[in-house]
Design a protein around this nucleic acid. Sequence first.
DNA 1: TACTTTGTCCTTTTT
DNA 2: GGACAAAGTA
Length: 714
Amino acid sequence: MSLHLELLNPEQLAAVTLPDEHALILAGAGSGKTRVLTTRIAWLVKSGRITPANILAVTFTNKAAREMLIRVTSMLPANPRGLWIGTFHGLCNRMLRAHHRDAGLPQAFQILDSQDQLAAVKRLARSMNVDEDRFSPRDIQYFINGNKEEGVRAGDVPIADENTKRLAELYAAYDEQCQREGVVDFPEMLLRSYELLKRNEILRAHYGQRFRHVLIDEFQDTNRLQYRWLKLFRTKESCFFAVGDDDQSIYTFRGANVGNMAEFEREFAIKRVVRLEQNYRSHGNILDAANALIANNRNRLGKNLWTSTGAGELVRVFEGESDMDEARWLVEEVRSLSRDGTSLSNMAVLYRSNAQSRVLEHALFSQGISYRVYGGLRFFERAEIKHALAYLRLVAQPDDDNSFLRVANFPPRGLGARTIEQLQDTAKKNQASLFKVAEGKSAVFKKLIEDLQTETRGLPLAEIVGIVVEKSGLKEHYKTEREGADRIENLDELVNAAATFNDDSREVESGEEVDPLTAFLTHAALEAGEHQAGEGADALQLMTVHSAKGLEFDVVFLSGLEEGLFPHEQSANERDGLEEERRLAYVAITRARNRLYLSHAQTRMLHGQTRYNIPSRFLEEIPQNLMKWLTPRFSKQKAFTPDFSRQTVSSLPKKSQAREVGGWRVGQNVVHPKFGSGVIIDAEGHGNDARVQVNFGAAGVKWLAVAMAKLQAA
DNA sequence: TACTTTGTCCTTTTT
DNA sequence: GGACAAAGTA
């Protein structure tokens, strides 16, 4: 019930109690960002000058939004009404449902997730005879979303060449298709909502007046459209409070624009940028390592984290001979920490890409250590759940062709590709949905949907879902399948989820209430990740660095620190790709409270091939005096230079058979007088002709004649 | 029409 | 190694 302002440090207090003016808060990792944001909201309300309804707080994830809501409400005496805290998409959804007519949408519009969108694009591409070699559905989807996120409609795409012209046509056709079917994809939600407010002066004035205080979390992750959307709420009286950390910007690959921070500073004439640099999370050595690493980035607003807790332990570094070796060591380490009293859920293993989890899982499983992998297949994304949702969507909105195609012949009911094709032709001719033109063979399916509609009308949500799961034949179908038991369990779980579902966003302010089924389907699309199993159990946490953002652990293992993996090889082709990789490493390191492990392996199975990787440059960028090697090997490789501008990683060519020539073995570490240290990645010939291919990192990859080159074993 | 086998492609991810 | 889609077979 209290704000506990006395517990804030001077900078935090300054941020919380800023007068009514625009503000930019540079909040470093672990600096109490969420606390400042939530206390600010509570402080504003308690001041009595405004009500909760005057506040708009925007976050990126549902998790962050929920956390914020909980913390704010705990600081206020009564449950605040009219307080808008949510994700960009959640808030846009709320607005679009409330003003669906003005936005040109049916009230029960359905939301396409990325998968659904891709399916819709594929279907469109086929109906328009697109050469998939020239334009893959992925590319088209990327083009559409990229433009939408810049606020550019199909008609406004600048036509530079034939390709763009064609893509713009497809974009236009795609939007028409969505409109016809009453569906909206993720970027469309933002753009629609943006256009709605932009065009409708009355609405804009209404919301602008209402939201006197606009607070934005993770501002560095906003894209251009999101920023423009936010600016629509700006009035003479309004105050914007943006919190962000440019060093933690790790989503530029999907359109986030860090430049928004500088833009905001300029456009809102920010007088004072408040820097939160005191870190309450990590020990000194860990923090120093993070600071040293990020100092290698040139594009920064500048910030240096410090802590008043001691230096703590050194950062531990391990080199494995192979990924399996690395995993075995890691499991042993986890086991002994666990024995010494650190709970498993307080330890996390982080990696750059999901593919790396497999080896770890294998090792953990065989040693009987419980673990939990984040970011795998989410509940609402499972095939059987998607199928059930498709039936439900058709009940709510039969013109949804995406859903129609998904389940028209699932479970199989004799509607083959031919029948569907004919149906699609008729639909195209009549500019109507598949459902409307279904006849003959497909009439049976149409009848099924219609029966479901009449049968479920007016029933409670859980019963609707139960009936649909049963009568669609899904359950029956999975009974005959070998691994169907899990799927049936999931379908039951879906009914459960429906039973416990209560939606607070249905409390609308403009009269019309959204029907429960649509609300549930919206929840499934927008909050797909919220429904996760095994949340409570004590288990080791496995996740990518990306999904670790915002979290913290006593012990963090950062594994696979190898050139090509982390930094990822693809990042070399992107503008400022390496800097983003470095920020990613920075995020990873700053997750650790007490102990940090960094590890890498000499060989690793990737894409079914063994790769020989050299240690990541990030290991070189951390001052040696902060680290403690658990294996001697790495410390021997003195010839490292910090410059790895050229090719640094290679995989073993497919056809290579020779593993060993003249005493040199593939995978072996070597030192060359001129090129420094490297690793043998291939070998061929024998005797005097024997040659080895060596990856020297900075000096590149070279073929060397064994007889000539003065190679030394490292 | 429906199931089985082969060929291609591999980041990161929330909404 | 593995997911997913297109081609192949009963």
